[in-house]
Write a protein that binds this DNA or RNA. Structure first.
Lengths: 193, 193
DNA sequence: TGTACATCAGTGAACGCGCGTTCACTGATGTAC
DNA sequence: TGTACATCAGTGAACGCGCGTTCACTGATGTAC
């Protein structure tokens, strides 16, 4: 019982696979996510995967690119609504929220997959690198009255603190400590802004 | 050609397996490291593993505990040599060095395995949690003239920034950006100390 | 101290299983005339 | 516009492979007398 889908539907299928990968990779890790899991999450059987992607590595690279771009867009969008310190605080507050911590599948790929991305292939790391650069630029837009260079430096440190705090808050099993890590990081960034 | 080893030698073998695991897990990730790899790195065949550990999960938990303890000791040892802001700067400088970035196998387990530890079993996360608490305390010892609570808050933020910066510096494929992330984080922490 | 026996560290083959990937096949979609 | 044919999205079985784990076996170590 097989039916060839139209090109439009096939393109949607590809997007569904990418979406499932984006969620599963960030939830369970790249190595721990099998293609069969992924495809059934997308409502397909595993054999069809290779009509859309050359390999798991290619899917990883594309997923890294799209999730990083999504994150950049979230931050850029916020930057056009609230400018300056208030805008930065809003971004940081959302990033360091309990909701983000508890929703790794829809959150920051750097925090969810940092270690695995560091060991990933060239294309994946290139996508991650470009995403990092854009993230830093998007954060830097909130610093007014500073040179571009200085703004980017501060933005980089803010990104480091955010990623580190989110990871630690997920590693730690004690909910009180986990909350404290997020709040203390958020306040420290707000104070320095 | 098999030879039963004395209990002393068996204990050394156990340590060798733990040491190999500590290095391989941090280099390649937990999921990506097979027991056969591990055992041959320890100079044994894979079948002997279960004379020393109940399961891979148990090995992971023990490895997490020992590597976290090692990290805490490094920082505590430093704290007893150089106290105060200078001591903290020395710790941060070593942590955020290019050497540490390029030697994941001998470095911080939180940075190398953060994402995987967050998804690990209860015992592993308990070891990681205790390690985090002790790390924060060890860092907090360097803050003079502050309440314990305030010192621990600042130490937690410093830890978040260090872990985040090290991870980002490893993810990023551009060496210039990677170096900048480390240096900017180090300087920001030094400035706030 | 010497002897007989139980223990158990380590070997290497084997277990079932899920992995990424390939393939023959189906039949609606898309194309050429 | 209608017909004939090629394309190709998706299925489901199969591939070799490495995984974590188990097991029968070996023989030096450790123990009991």
């Amino acid at each position: 019982v097989t039916v060839r889908k139209s090109r439009l539907e096939a393109a949607k299928t590809r997007e569904r696979i990418l979406g499932a990968a984006a969620a599963k990779f960030r939830e369970h890790g790249i190595a721990a996510t099998g293609l069969a899991d992924l495809m059934s999450a997308a409502g397909l059987t595993h054999g069809g995967f290779y009509r859309h992607f050359d390999s798991k590595d290619q899917l990883v690279a594309e997923t890294c690119a799209t999730t990083m771009t999504e994150l950049v867009h979230q931050i850029s969008a916020n930057a056009s609504v609230k400018r300056g310190p208030q805008g930065l605080r809003a971004v940081v507050s959302a990033y360091l929220s309990a909701e983000h911590r508890d929703n790794a599948g829809g959150g920051c790929p750097l925090a969810a997959l940092g270690g695995e991305l560091a060991r990933a292939d060239e294309k994946t790391r290139a996508a991650a690198t470009e995403g990092c650069l854009k993230l830093i630029e998007a954060l830097a837009e909130h610093y007014e009255g500073l040179s571009n260079e200085e703004a980017r430096k501060r933005a980089g440190v803010v990104l480091s603190t955010m990623v580190g705090a989110l990871i630690l808050s997920r590693v730690v099993a004690d909910p009180t400590l986990s909350d404290a890590i997020l709040q203390d990081a958020e306040r420290a960034i707000a104070r320095a802004t």
